[in-house]
Design a protein around this nucleic acid. Structure first.
Lengths: 338, 338
DNA sequence: ATGAAAGCGCTAACAA
DNA sequence: TTGTTAGCGCTTTCAT
């Protein structure tokens, strides 16, 4: 069942040994210039590419790393994934994109290594997992975490400073002169260790602006999609004293909220100002366009891949790090009109 | 570097040969009941799971199939990809998601087998590739095509009937009493063999409605994103006699177009009615919500994966087929107001 | 019904 | 600098 060109074919064609060809391909030890050229030509002519299964069988690595995001069709994750795929490619790795549907079982399966035998390591953006889950993990494949959740676990973690970013977002709404500021997108579940960071930033910002925290203005959502924003906002608009501004957990929720506000025949931002989080393209083209917190998605993807590969290759012997990436406030029509 | 339990470990533990353990695991040939129980117990006790690389080295397959889409953060493709990943999983395959950025070189690399040794087969949604490119391909890994382009090439192809769907879309605009109907999103490149199907459906629908075709009402775009819709619509609005309705190549273009219409202080649908194509979630939550052609994305993903796996496993010896999947018109605010 | 052994393609230890 | 070879874990042919 030999279906391709193997090292042996190249060796024969170039009149050298297997080891030499391997060294031309991998560069583990020096090869004479003349030999290298000859081998390289044979490789080009016959169209050789290494058999990964064989390589893996031999050295225990597959050259494949996985990235598991909660949902494929959340543009935020799509952008992070795009950056990660590019970065993996530049290091000679293939990135396997997977998704968890924000499902606890799937997240558990992944960290326990459902693909254990296929991948060299995993980057996970957990939603439901708790600190205990991560600590209880038995797999010895490297794991890098991205996203809001910080678990204080022995793994690299890449994220923006969610508390600070949320603070900036709410501060922006305050600066508009709004006082009743709502938050949509609190987590309903109890697995998360540290309190919900964006909610905490919201509370801190209110507090430093001298505004009181009203639990009625916090809308809990099951998921983090447009539909959840729509539902959440509808609830808030039923209040006897509805909010004048909304900080949404992410842009999708914000877009759903805007839709609900329009349904109620109110205007954005005149009646209700809305700010999101993620800076996805949808928000830039929405009507009105969406003010948001813009995280550096490119560097999140890049750093996650780099950290993981460093662990996989055992070069990176440093302590697990908590790496913070930059963010900025982008003001658009949903808060400042036009 | 042995990192797990191997067949040999089980064999020793159960006091049988390697072959017997393999047969308990795979069931290629019968095993005595007593032996089977003993081996199974050893497997459970030691926690054996097969080393995929070894298995694949042996039988020439990796258990990984690839799906290459033009862009990750087009929700249409994200949904198709989600369906494909699920379907692959149910067949015991892992799906590797890749993207081409609608770049001709990347598409060529993929069909020529840049990942040749990693995957058992490829599903591709081509944008730039022409019939000749596909015919010239040398790789012998199975290839399944999805999407608008039909090349009359020897590969399975899954898509909706684009001409018919476009006809329905334009017919809907005609039924609203609009006469100047524009099309945004024509392909600028020359590689595509059959003329652009959606454009053809547009022309046919105009013709059967007794409307004349005005080339000035066709906006060519470089890509198929929101920005392209925005730019294209701006051009159309500069016409001395701007359109009363727009058929966009896809929902993203439609959303960009709506943005441009709003910028010009015109209303959708009163001044310009807009219909898209794909039925992505963005359109359902846009303001106004978007009328669109809704293809059955789930079945596109499923059928593509099933066809490919059938080819990979050599079961499916039938002729390459052109499989059409269902679609329907979904009317929303962008054409019928509210 | 079961076992022994070859060999898939590759890397690395050992030799030269 | 280059060659030889063992062996990673598995499936499968040939023997028993």
């Amino acid at each position: 069942m030999p279906v391709g060109v193997s090292l042996k074919d190249i060796a024969k064609h170039a009149g050298v040994s297997l080891a030499t060809v391997s060294n031309v391909v991998n560069g583990y030890r020096p090869v004479g210039e003349e030999t290298r050229v000859r081998v390289q030509r044979a490789i080009d002519e016959l169209g050789y590419s290494p058999n990964l299964s064989a390589r893996h069988l031999r050295n225990g690595r597959t050259g494949i790393i996985a990235l598991a995001i909660p949902e494929l069709n959340n543009p935020y994750f799509a952008e992070v994934a795009g950056a990660a795929i590019r970065e993996a490619g530049t290091h000679g790795y293939t990135l396997l994109l997977d998704y968890t549907d924000s499902d606890r079982q799937k997240e558990l399966l992944l960290i326990e290594g459902i693909r254990e035998r296929v991948i060299d390591g995993l980057i996970l953006s957990p939603v439901q997992l708790g600190r205990a889950d991560v600590l209880a993990r038995r797999s010895d494949k490297p794991l890098v975490l991205i996203g809001e959740s910080v678990y204080d676990v022995p793994h690299d973690h890449i994220a923006i400073d969610n508390v600070a970013a949320s603070h900036v977002a709410v501060q922006h709404l305050v600066s508009l002169g709004r006082h009743r500021i709502a938050f949509i997108g609190a987590h309903p579940d109890v697995h998360r260790q540290p309190a919900h960071l964006r909610l905490r930033g919201y509370q801190e910002a209110l507090s430093s602006a001298g505004l009181s925290f009203d639990p009625a203005l916090v809308a809990v959502t099951a998921q983090f999609g447009r539909q959840d924003g729509l539902t959440g906002m509808r609830e808030l608009l039923k209040l006897s004293e509805p909010p004048e501004a909304v900080f949404a957990y992410n842009d999708l929720i914000a877009i759903g909220a805007i839709r609900a506000i329009h349904e109620a025949n109110l205007r954005v931002p005149q009646d209700v100002a809305v700010i999101g989080f993620d800076d996805i393209e949808d928000g830039r083209f929405a009507t009105p366009s969406l003010t948001t917190i813009s995280p550096d998605k490119e560097s999140i993807g890049q750093l996650a891949v780099r950290s993981l590969i460093a662990r996989v290759e055992g070069k990176h012997v440093s302590e697990p790090a908590d790496i913070q990436t930059p963010f900025r406030l982008v003001t658009r029509e949903s808060t400042i009109g036009r």
